[in-house]
């Protein structure tokens, strides 16, 4: 093999590496936490969680429980933002997200969000969960007619789709995708460990002990 042969191989590898890094740079987007929209928790909290979730995805329900538990056991430590990311493969996800968007527009998003995740196994298997979604709205205190009017308005669906498009621009493809202090976690398996690692050492000890 001549030097020219190896040099050719080196050039090919160099071009490939350059192409990958250029493409990565072109797709890079700002993922920093923005405290607008569906946000809860202490604004001065040191841990910022931005979650892109699907209401019908089982892993998202697990991640929801993890975050919920963390918020309860460590008050004031985290601020969380929810972003719609309904997956095409989930039959009722679109409707669930539109309902949740209506809950947001009518002024009480988080109880509705919790209800959808807590009852995911029940409504996911229904033929048509619309009535169940309306029932949840009533249980939380929304007027049935106001909620129905919101569901019929195309604006809620448009808001869900626009938010999903924002997620797609951030190269989100799987759910849940969660940014914890700007660090991306996909699938939620390492979420609990990540959140605990961000606790001040004294608090970590007191929770363990």
């Amino acid at each position: 093999m001549s030097k020219k042969y190896f040099f050719t191989g080196f050039v090919i590898v160099f071009v490939l590496v350059a192409a990958v890094f250029s493409a990565r740079a072109a797709f890079q987007k700002d993922t920093s936490f923005s405290p607008t929209g569906k946000v809860t928790g202490d604004p001065s909290a040191p841990i910022k969680i931005s979650t892109w979730s699907d209401f019908q995805c089982p892993s998202c329900a697990v991640a929801h429980k993890t975050v919920h538990h963390f918020m309860e056991t460590h008050p004031g430590m985290a601020q969380i933002k929810f972003n719609h990311f309904p997956l095409k493969g989930h039959q009722h996800a679109r409707m669930a997200h539109i309902s949740a968007e209506c809950a947001y527009r009518l002024g009480n998003f988080w109880p509705y969000h919790d209800k959808l995740y807590d009852n995911q196994e029940k409504w996911s298997v229904l033929q048509d969960p619309t009535d169940t979604f309306l029932q949840y709205a009533e249980e939380i205190g929304f007027s049935r007619s106001a909620f129905q009017a919101c569901l019929a308005d195309v604006a809620a669906e448009k808001a869900v789709l626009l938010e999903k498009m924002d997620g797609t621009k951030l190269q989100i493809e799987r759910t849940p995708t969660i940014f914890v202090n700007n660090e991306r976690l996909v699938g939620g398996k390492d979420l609990e460990a990540k959140l605990n690692s961000l606790l001040p050492k004294e608090e970590e000890k007191s929770v363990d002990g």
């Binding site: 990958v20 990565r24 190269q171 991306r184 996909v186 699938g187 398996k189």
Partner: peptide, 18 residues
């Protein structure tokens, strides 16, 4: 390979982990 490399590495990590 290219499609995996231009995405955030966490996406493929999640696929492997699954």
């Amino acid at each position: 390979g290219f499609m995996k490399l231009i995405e955030p590495i966490e996406n493929f990590e999640s696929v492997v982990s699954d």
